[in-house]
Amino acid sequence: MSYDPPRPAGRLLLTPEDKEAPARADRLRRLGLGERTEPALDAFADGLAEVTGAPYAMVNFIDEDRQFFAGLHLPAIGPYVRSDGTSPEVGRTLPRDHGFCPHVVVRRKALVLEDVCDYPRFAGNPVVDEFGIRSYLGAPLIDSTGMVLGTVCVVDVAPRPWGKAGLETIKTAAAELTVRLERYGQV
């Protein structure tokens, strides 16, 4: 069974099929994650934003239908202004077909997009137009059972040369957070 919503014909972006979504949702419920904000995860996201210099950082748990940012760092002033002069309101949830974390979860490995517009598969993602996202760096949170719980990621509204150092930073952050999540049964 697929959990991907139908896409309009002609779009290159396809949200990957996620066969582990029901088992992940169950595991997240048992760990007490993915339903409420966590101050410790907000602090983790703050630290990740500081280390990478990114305006946005998230600890993201993904179930069958949505993404939930249990940890979220936002800039004090939104760095993206739409053509109509408004800034997008960033919340704690996104549909599963928004953003790049669902790709990280299904791939089970880190994803580096220095400029999402260089990749037709990702350039059409709703977060590009809605939030002005131009670069992404994310890694999966894989627990000791082999289950991908979600991701840690940073994004920017400008292209960013994340490089090998960025990749190592995000992978290390994901590994460290996974140990913390399991050690305490949650954060």
Rank of each mutant, 00 (worst) to 15 (best):
E20S: 08
G34T: 07
R108I: 09
A43H: 06
D84Q: 02
V90R: 03
V128T: 15
A173M: 13
A123C: 07
A40P: 04
T172H: 11
E130Y: 15
F131E: 10
V81D: 04
V128Q: 05
L149S: 14
P6D: 01
K171H: 05
L181T: 10
L72T: 01
R183P: 00
G53N: 07
D129W: 03
P159H: 00
P95S: 03
R29G: 06
V152Q: 05
S144Y: 11
K109W: 05
E38T: 06
F69H: 14
V179W: 13
P95T: 00
V157K: 05
H73R: 14
L72V: 05
D4P: 04
R29Y: 01
F61D: 03
E35I: 00
L13H: 04
R183I: 00
R30G: 00
T52L: 11
L12H: 10
E35D: 09
L14N: 12
L33G: 13
F131P: 00
P22N: 08
G146V: 01
K164V: 12
A23V: 11
S87K: 05
R108P: 07
P5I: 07
R11D: 04
R27M: 00
P102Y: 06
K19F: 03
E130T: 14
L167I: 01
L72S: 00
T145N: 08
L12N: 02
C153W: 06
F100N: 10
V90Q: 05
F122E: 09
E38C: 07
L12Q: 09
N60W: 10
C153Q: 03
E64D: 13
A123P: 01
V51N: 03
F44D: 03
A139P: 11
L111C: 00
Y56N: 10
M147W: 13
L41A: 11
P159S: 09
E168L: 13
I170N: 09
G99A: 02
E17W: 02
R11F: 14
G150N: 15
A158P: 00
G163S: 14
T178I: 04
A76Y: 07
V116Y: 10
S2F: 09
K164T: 15
C117G: 04
T172R: 09
E130S: 15
G47A: 12
D84K: 04
T169D: 14
A175F: 09
P102W: 04
E176Q: 15
L48V: 13
L113V: 13
Y184K: 14
L94W: 06
D26V: 08
C117F: 11
Y3K: 06
P6H: 06
E17H: 10
E17R: 08
A40R: 12
P159D: 10
P140R: 12
R82I: 02
D18N: 13
D143A: 12
G78F: 00
R82Q: 06
S2D: 11
Y80V: 05
F131C: 09
G47D: 15
S87H: 02
A43W: 07
A76C: 02
P88A: 02
K164L: 14
G185Y: 12
